[in-house]
Design a binder for these strands. Structure first.
Length: 832
DNA sequence: GTCCGCTACCTTTTT
DNA sequence: GGTAGCGGAC
């Protein structure tokens, strides 16, 4: 989403002089750092390290793999290593390539290196995300990829809209072949570095009756004409450039003396290829100074193309590599580490690390496992516990709730709202993804880069100005005929009689406006221009006249957008920033509980952590099991490991016996991961309102640990047919029975809560109203028509006799004689 | 051209 | 049960 002038200098911040031999005196930061130590070398920064960390920092030459367990000081090692390379005069800042995955990580590294070296570093031009460095390379060599250096970066939304156009242009039905799905396929290919001609036949055939390859090629063509790239291209184009142009590659080889990679376990194939190209010097015996830092146990992004194998294979890829393990943990208590280590040990195919701590205190609390009747009670109990902590003076900022899936957040939010407890959701819809922001940005884009057709399309009728589908089609036709941009086509069209007077007039106003704004681009301060655009286009008015609840917030966001533009010195600079840096900072002032998914919690830590929803089907997620088999399960287990290791001191795991899944209440069984925790470090909470123990047959006690009850499944190819699943089903029945046995006792308590709690129990009846309308079964929803007929007399284990009133797939609506009307799965009733 | 109601979805997410 | 996105009605 950004335009860039062709003449922008890319390497101006780089040192133009040839690289110094290590002994020679460097300039810039390194020189300052060296100058600072008048006597012997000032290596005080090394004193803060433990022996392993120090080894990782001082092994500067040759390939190094640092296996850094959770909380072992990974970032410290990375930043100190860079500081060390600089301070010892081994390289200029511009000769170090340091890649991260997120902007946040890059920012943090920059800051910490700055602190170590004693000055803010302006001079680390090659520290950034894979994507931002990709942009940099691509802008410099755009013509080698058939682009102009002013290319635009499309985000996912633009990408999907473009795909839609292409699918329709091919005469295909976009219902049958959803653009979103195709975008995902293309993403997958790009993650593997595959061009249209490289994709496997099977893949090509899988979409649109074998048209997958053509569509992909058409999409790439279209991008080229638009002078645009998507996120995947930011990796793929540089790879192709480096591979096809040895002279260019050689330049970068000369340039980068040290390469550092953060979170190496998350790299995908394309990123791996990119790194290999830059790191390997085929015709030289010169050692490759590449240092990858990562933790195979925290690889949780396989589903988006990350290859754990990259880290597992490192020693083969880089012969003679030093492998350094960081296992000394500074974050968590021995109980938490014990639990996490024991859990992760159930995974195969890991490099193997065991975290330990030297700070052990007999007072440390064990990991607590809690049972709740259902997800509402889970939220309520966690809320109470947090209130209790707050009363004791615990800061809410020190507390986090980490969920497997974002729908779980709702109940906690609801609960916190009623309690008046401050909370913040991390990782929700991002600022720059909001509609109003994207609209405004589209206006800025079309002004900054007139060829940005996608931007033009987005705003042509926002606010509504009577330019609907018909008008847009006309513009498109002209644009195709004349091979002109949409804006040019629109300009031409208003000069003819082709449009009806009304749309023509409003299109003329729009085009006039855009051209006027373009004329102002270089003469008007960009924040001022931005305000003018939003004002004159009628965009601000649109929201001012909107009476919906969100409108004021949207206006506020627009103001915030303008405010944030002040940090950049031009509209173009701002657009470039936004294309890549899609995050907004959080409000640090507020004392609030953090609520987020396990995925977004990676890298964070909190004194107190709640992990709700440890149930089969949710965590591990059924879909991970179905689609990922054994490796899917292992990734879920790593996710559990990530969750556990976020906690510093207090760790609470929860599971509920009943949860609403796709609208139906289902009975659930505790997660197998609970069985995989070591008894020695875990306490099962015996709350007054607890609903029985979590382990089949041993209420209140964990299973003897070691082998999980699911462990000896050969494979999960069809998880429902495996002995493990059968057993799970059996256990499930036992658990359910037990829960039902307990039920009435809890119901009383529940009703007490229920009265105070708005609408609690309403619609689900009173005492008998805690309806379990199904159970965690494989086919909770199925297209297979039920064998029942309307009017059939049936029997249900819990609800008794009734008549089938309606059938929807395998879901039956039954009028029970005593329990009233319920919807249940057909597997739970039998004909009588 | 716009609005509303129905249907199909429903894991995780960065750039 | 909640929502997004599409198609039909005005």
């Amino acid at each position: 989403m950004s335009g860039f002038p062709d003449d922008i200098p890319f390497f101006d911040e780089d040192d133009p002089t040839p690289p110094p031999p290590a002994a020679q005196k460097p300039s810039g930061i390194a020189a300052r750092a060296m100058a600072a130590r008048s006597g012997g070398p000032d290596t005080r920064y090394l004193d803060a390290l433990n022996p392993e960390q120090r080894l990782a920092v001082e092994t500067t030459e040759g390939p190094v793999l640092v296996l850094a367990g959770a909380g072992t000081g990974k970032t410290r090692v990375l930043t100190t290593r860079i500081a060390h390379i600089l301070a010892s005069g081994r390289a200029y800042p511009s000769q170090i390539l340091a890649v991260t995955f997120t902007n946040k990580a890059a920012r943090e590294m920059k800051m910490r290196i700055g602190t170590l070296v004693g000055e803010a570093i302006e001079g680390m031009p090659w520290l950034g995300t894979f994507h931002s460095i990709g942009v940099k390379i691509l802008r410099k060599h755009a013509e080698l990829a058939g682009l102009k250096s002013s290319f635009t970066i499309l985000d996912t939304d633009d990408q999907i809209r473009l795909m839609k156009q292409i699918i329709q242009a091919e005469g295909l039905d976009d219902k049958r072949w959803p653009p979103r799905q195709f975008a995902q396929m293309v993403d997958g290919w790009k993650n593997k570095g595959l061009a249209p001609k490289d994709i496997p036949e099977g893949d090509a055939r899988a979409f649109a009756n074998g048209k997958g390859r053509e569509l992909y090629a058409a999409y790439q063509d279209r991008l080229k004409t638009l002078n645009a790239v998507d996120f995947g291209d930011l990796l793929c184009h540089p790879i192709r450039i480096l591979r096809d142009h040895p002279d260019v590659l050689a330049d970068y080889h000369r340039k980068f003396r040290y390469i550092l990679v953060d979170e190496y376990q998350d790299t995908n194939t394309a990123q791996y290829m990119w790194l290999r190209l830059l790191a390997q010097r085929p015709k030289s015996t010169e050692p490759v100074n590449i240092c990858c830092v990562g933790d195979d146990d925290q690889s949780i992004y396989g589903w988006r193309g990350a290859e754990v194998d990259n880290i597992l294979r490192f020693e083969k890829d880089f012969p003679g590599a030093a492998v350094i393990r960081l296992e000394r943990n500074y974050r968590s208590t021995a109980h938490i580490l014990g639990a996490a280590s024991h859990l992760i040990a159930h995974n195969e195919g890991r490099l193997g690390k065991t975290l330990f701590t030297e700070q052990s205190d007999p007072d440390d609390p064990k990991v607590k496992v809690h049972a709740a009747w259902d997800s509402e009670e889970e939220a309520r109990a966690v809320g109470e516990e947090i209130e209790a902590l707050q009363t004791k003076g615990h800061a809410l900022n020190d507390i986090a709730i980490l969920v497997r899936a974002s729908f779980q957040m709702r109940e906690f939010e609801d609960r916190f709202v009623t309690l008046g407890l401050n909370y913040r959701v991390i990782g929700g819809p991002r600022f720059y993804e909001r509609m109003e922001i994207r609209d405004a940005m589209a206006y800025f884009r079309i002004v900054a880069q007139a060829a940005d057709d996608l931007a033009f399309e987005r705003i042509v009728n926002v606010p509504k100005r009577g330019l609907g589908e018909a008008s847009v089609r006309q513009i498109h036709d002209v644009s195709r005929m004349r091979e002109a941009t949409l804006l040019q086509a629109a300009r031409d069209l208003v000069g003819t009689e082709e449009m009806k007077p009304k749309p023509r007039a409003s299109l003329r106003t729009l085009v006039d406006n855009i051209e006027r704004w373009q004329g102002m681009l270089d003469r008007t301060p960009h924040t001022e221009l931005a305000e003018i655009i939003l004002e004159e286009s009628g965009y601000t008015d649109m929201w001012k006249n909107d009476r919906s609840a969100e409108a004021p917030g949207r206006l506020e966001n627009l103001k915030e957008l303008i405010r944030s533009m002040e940090d950049y010195d031009s509209l173009r600079g701002f657009l470039e920033h936004v294309a890549l840096v899609m995050d907004a900072e959080r409000d640090e002032e507020l004392d609030a509980v953090s609520l987020m998914t396990l995925h977004s919690a990676k890298g964070l830590e909190f004194p107190t952590v709640f992990l709700p929803g440890w149930e089969e089907g949710l965590f591990p997620h059924q879909r991970a099991l179905d689609e990922g088999g054994r490796s899917g399960l292992e990734e879920e287990r790593r996710l559990a490991y990530v969750g556990l290791t976020r906690a510093k001191r207090n760790l609470h795991l929860w599971f509920a016996s009943n949860r609403r899944i796709h609208g139906l209440w289902q009975s659930t069984i505790p997660s197998r991961f609970l069985d995989e925790l070591p008894e020695a470090h875990v306490d099962v909470a015996e709350e007054s309102n607890s609903y029985g123990g979590y382990s089949a047959g041993q209420p209140g006690r964990p299973n003897p640990y070691g082998k999980s009850r699911f462990d000896d499944q050969p494979a999960f190819s069809n998880s429902y047919a495996t002995p493990g699943w059968q057993r799970a089903q059996k256990n499930r029945t036992e658990a359910t029975t037990r829960n039902w046995g307990n039920r009435s006792g809890h119901q009383v308590e529940r009703i007490g809560y229920g009265e105070a709690d708005s609408g609690y129990g309403a619609g689900r009846g009173s005492v008998k109203g805690r309806v379990i309308e199904g159970e965690l079964v494989a086919k909770s929803v199925s297209d297979t028509p039920s064998s029942f007929k309307v009017g059939d007399r049936v029997f249900h284990l819990k609800f008794g006799n009734g008549n089938v009133a309606a059938i929807e797939g395998n879901k039956l609506t039954i009028n029970f004689d005593k329990a009233g009307q319920k919807r249940v799965l057909d597997g739970f009733v039998e004909r009588v």
